[in-house]
């Protein structure tokens, strides 16, 4: 095992021992951290299986040429529109967008499209926007979209092109 892995395992083990000891001794802060851990884990465990099943199906069924044509190097502005739509229907938080982004990338989507997808998944998720508009008003949400989306697309193109020139690659996640 690599040294890093050992350190990580020790840290995780220490964390869980801390939670168990806090729970047994009634140490308040530790108990609260434990509750946070459980509440976040359950939220994510609710989302992750469904999302990864869709990623798996996407990998097997969607042809590489299709992704390349619509989202790859030869695609036009419609590629950005597609991923904004995809981003707005992404569930969970940004954390779930990264594996999806990798799935798109491994099928040949270009970097600027990938970064636009990440941005859209952060700012355009529809369930979230409905929540936002109902608590802060439609005007707030509309302005936020109108300002952030173009900036996301422009910066994604700049960053994507820069990294493509440098021969940058996204890795499989480890």
């Amino acid at each position: 095992m690599k040294r890093n892995t050992v350190i990580k395992i020790i840290l995780f083990a220490g964390y869980f021992v801390f939670l168990v000891v806090s729970w047994l001794t009634g140490f308040n802060s530790g108990q609260e951290i434990g509750r946070n851990f459980i509440s976040f884990s359950t939220t994510m465990l609710g989302i992750i299986p469904g999302a990864f099943i869709l990623i798996g199906l996407f990998e097997v069924w969607v042809k590489r040429e299709t992704v390349e044509r619509h989202l790859g190097e030869g695609s036009d502005f419609r590629g950005y529109l597609w991923v904004i739509l995809l981003g707005s229907t992404t569930v969970g938080g940004l954390y779930m967008a990264f594996p999806v982004a990798y799935a798109l990338y491994s099928k040949g989507a270009k970097l600027s499209v990938i970064f636009t997808y990440l941005g859209a998944a952060a700012i355009c998720r529809i369930p979230m926007a409905i929540f936002e508009a109902s608590f802060l008003g439609v005007k707030f949400t509309v302005i936020r979209w109108l300002v952030s989306l173009p900036l996301v697309i422009i910066t994604s193109i700049l960053l994507g092109n820069y990294l493509t020139r440098k021969g940058y690659k996204v890795s499989a996640g480890k």
């Binding site: 992750i48 299986p49 990864f52 099943i53 990623i55 798996g56 199906l57 990998e59 097997v60 069924w61 594996p99 799935a103 996640g173």
Partner: peptide, 10 residues
């Protein structure tokens, strides 16, 4: 195959 990929990715 897709379920295997899903599990591996996860």
């Amino acid at each position: 195959r897709s379920l295997k990929i899903a599990a591996r990715r996860f």
